[in-house]
Design a protein around this nucleic acid. Sequence first.
DNA 1: GATGAATGAGTCTTCATTCAT
DNA 2: GATGAATGAAGACTCATTCAT
Lengths: 212, 212, 212, 212
Amino acid sequence: MARPRNQTARRAQLIAAARQAVSVHGPARVRVADIADAAGVARGSVHYYFRDLDQLLEQVYKDAVDRFFTQRLDAVTGLRDARDKLVACARRGLPTGADDELARLLYWFGPEATDNAVFAAHCQGLFDRQVAVYSGLLEVGEAQDHFVLAEPAVDIAANLVTLEDGYGLHIVTGNRSVTPERALSLVLGYARSATGCADLTPDRPVQESPRA
Amino acid sequence: MARPRNQTARRAQLIAAARQAVSVHGPARVRVADIADAAGVARGSVHYYFRDLDQLLEQVYKDAVDRFFTQRLDAVTGLRDARDKLVACARRGLPTGADDELARLLYWFGPEATDNAVFAAHCQGLFDRQVAVYSGLLEVGEAQDHFVLAEPAVDIAANLVTLEDGYGLHIVTGNRSVTPERALSLVLGYARSATGCADLTPDRPVQESPRA
Amino acid sequence: MARPRNQTARRAQLIAAARQAVSVHGPARVRVADIADAAGVARGSVHYYFRDLDQLLEQVYKDAVDRFFTQRLDAVTGLRDARDKLVACARRGLPTGADDELARLLYWFGPEATDNAVFAAHCQGLFDRQVAVYSGLLEVGEAQDHFVLAEPAVDIAANLVTLEDGYGLHIVTGNRSVTPERALSLVLGYARSATGCADLTPDRPVQESPRA
Amino acid sequence: MARPRNQTARRAQLIAAARQAVSVHGPARVRVADIADAAGVARGSVHYYFRDLDQLLEQVYKDAVDRFFTQRLDAVTGLRDARDKLVACARRGLPTGADDELARLLYWFGPEATDNAVFAAHCQGLFDRQVAVYSGLLEVGEAQDHFVLAEPAVDIAANLVTLEDGYGLHIVTGNRSVTPERALSLVLGYARSATGCADLTPDRPVQESPRA
DNA sequence: GATGAATGAGTCTTCATTCAT
DNA sequence: GATGAATGAAGACTCATTCAT
C-alpha cells in the first residue's frame, strides 16, 4: 500500500511497452506476450497491473492522445509570432516517418473507436482540441496582421488538422509518395493560400523544446 | 482464366460477404465464420475457394480499392464541366456516413499494410491514381478557364485527396464533429481558394449513375 | 472419423465421458482435458458440442438425475408386492460401492447447487420425486395389508429417502464403517419398524431389469 | 508445542477465516485471496503460516470436525434425562439453515475425502464418534426406563446419525422441501418408533450452553 | 513478522484449417 | 462441388506460490 510510487511507475512502464508493441502490431493483433516482452516482465505481471488487455489498451490510447496533444501544444505555446506557431504546429502534427510510434498508435486505434465509446470519445476530443489550437493561432495571426483569413478560422483550422491527419495516415501506412517533408510542404501550401501569408514556409527556424 | 463461371461467381460472392464482414469487424478481428455467415455458406466452403483467410483478405482489399477508384472515376468521366467533375469527385471521395462499407474497409486495412507489401502497394497505388484524377480534372478546369491554380496542379490534387482521406477517417471513426456534409463543404472551401473558382459549391447538380 | 450418427449421439458420448470424469474428480476439479481424454476426442471437440464447461456440467447433472430416478422407478414398477417394491427400491437407492459412478456424481454436485439455480432445481426435484415414489409404494402396501404405517406415509418416505442419501454419502465418501450391505440392512430395519412389516429383509428376491 | 502464542493465534485466525471462505465457495473453489481477505491479512501471509493451501484446508477440516463433535457432545453432557439428551443431540446435529457454516463445510469436503486419506479418516472418525454418542445415550435411556429399543442400539444410532446427515445435506444444498424444523420433526419421528418413547418431541426445553 | 510485487504453470476458450463424406 | 465435424495450436486469464523488503 505504501508503495504507490512503484505501482504508478510500473503501470507507466507497461503502458510505454504497450505503446511500442501496439505501434508495431496494431491494437487488434498485439498480444499480451508482446507487451510483456517489450516491458521485460512476465506475462502474468501484465495482468497484475491491468485487469485485462482491453483495459490496458484503453490506457495506452488515452495516454497517447494526451501525449500527442501536449507535444503539439508545447510546440506552439513557446512562440510569439503566429507564423512560427503555425509552422511549428504543423511540423509537430505530422509523423516524423513511417515508424513514428505515437502517430502509428493514433491511427491504428481508429477501428477500435467504432465499437468502443471510450476510444471514440478520446478520438473526437483530440480532433476538437487540435482544431481549437489552430483556430486560436489563426486569430492571433490575424491580430498580428500576418494573416488574412479567406474562410472562417474554424474552417481553416479543421482543414489544417485534417490535412495533417490525412498525410499522417499515408506516411504511417508507408505510402512512399508522401514523405514527411512533402507533407509539410503541402500543408503549408494550403496554409499560405488560406491565410494569404507567403511567409509560411518549412524553413522557419525550429525551436526545439520551447519550454526549456 | 480457365476458371469456370461458377468458380468465379462464388469467389465474388465470398469477397462481397467478406467486404461486409470486414467493414464491421475490421480485418484483424473478422472471423472466417463471420464471412461464411454473411455469404450464407458453410465455413469449410471459404477454404474451398481461398487457401486461407489472408489470401481472401488480400482479394477483398484489392477488390475494394478497385471498386472505390472505379466509382470515383465514373463520377467524373460522365461530366464535361470541370467544376461539375470536381464537385462530383469530392462527393464520391467522402464516405456517405459512419457505416459506409467501402470507406470503412479502406481505412481499417491501414495496419495490415504495414506488414504486407501487397496491401501497401494497393494502398499507395490508390492514392497516386486519385491524385492523377484530380490533377487531370484541374488542368481541364484551367483549360476551360474556370480555374486559376494557385499552386501546381499535383499539389492541389494531393491536398484534395488527403483532405478527403482525413475527413473520411473521421467520419468512419464516428467523429460527430465531422458530418459528411460539413466535410464536403470544407473540402470545397479549400478547392475554391486553390482554384480561385467560387462556383465550387455542394449544390452543383448531382448526376446519378453518369454511365447509364 | 466414423461420423457418429448425429449431433445427439456425440453429445451423449461426451456427457457419458464427463459423467465418468466428474465422478472421479468432482465437478469443481474436473478439467476439460479429463473429459476429452475420457471420450477419446481432442480438447477442442468438447467445445464444439458445448459452449463451455459449465453448460456441459449442467447437462451431466440433469442426465444423472434422470438416469438415477429412472433406474429406481424401473426397479419398482415391475413388481406387484409392495414389500418387493420397497426392498428393490431401497437397494437401487443405495450406491453399489464407493465407486458407484452415478451416486458419486449426484453427491459431489451438491456444492454447485448452492450457486446455481438450475442445479438446485434438479436436486430438489429428485428428492421430491423419490419421496413420491416411496409414498405411493407405502400406500400400496397398506392397501395390500402388508404395512401398518406408524407415521404419515410422506414422513416415512422422506425418512427412507434421507436414510439412503445419508448412507449413500458415507459409502461414496469411502466411510468403511458403512458398507452397502449394512446400509441396506439398516434402512430396512427402519422400514420394518415404520411399517410394522417384518418381511422387509434384504433377501427378498432381486428382480433384475424388470422391464426386460 | 514450542510455537509462540502469536503463531498459534494467527493460525487459528486464518483457520477461522478459511472456514468461512470454504463454507461459501467450497474447498475446491476457495482461493487463497478469499481466505486472506476474510482474515484481513495480505495474501502472502497465508503462506507464512501454512506451507500451502492444501495444508490449510486439512487443518480447516480437522478443526471443523472437532468443533462439530464438541458442540454436539456439549449439548448432551450437560443433561441428565436421556430424552433431553436425544432431542438436544438431534437438534445440534442438524444445520440451523442453508447458511450453517460448519455444516456446509463438512458436506462440501466430501469429494476431497476421496483422494485424501487424511480427510477420509476425519470423516469416518466423525461418523463413528457420533454413533458412539447416540449409542451411549440410547443405553442410558434404556437404563432410565424411558426407551425400549426395537433394534440394537448401534443400529438405531447409525440411523439417527445418518438421518441427520441426509437431512443436513438437503438443508445445506438449499432444498426447500426440507426445513430444519421439519427435519428435526422427522428425525424425532424415527426416534420415537425406534425407542418406543412418545416423549421425544421438538418442544423439549432447550438448554442453552449447558456448560456455563 | 508481514507484505505484496512478481511470477509462470495450468486451464479454458477461440478459431483457422483440414478432411472424410 | 460443398459441407461441417473435428482438430490443435494459440492466446487470454487465474491464481498458488515465492521472495526481497
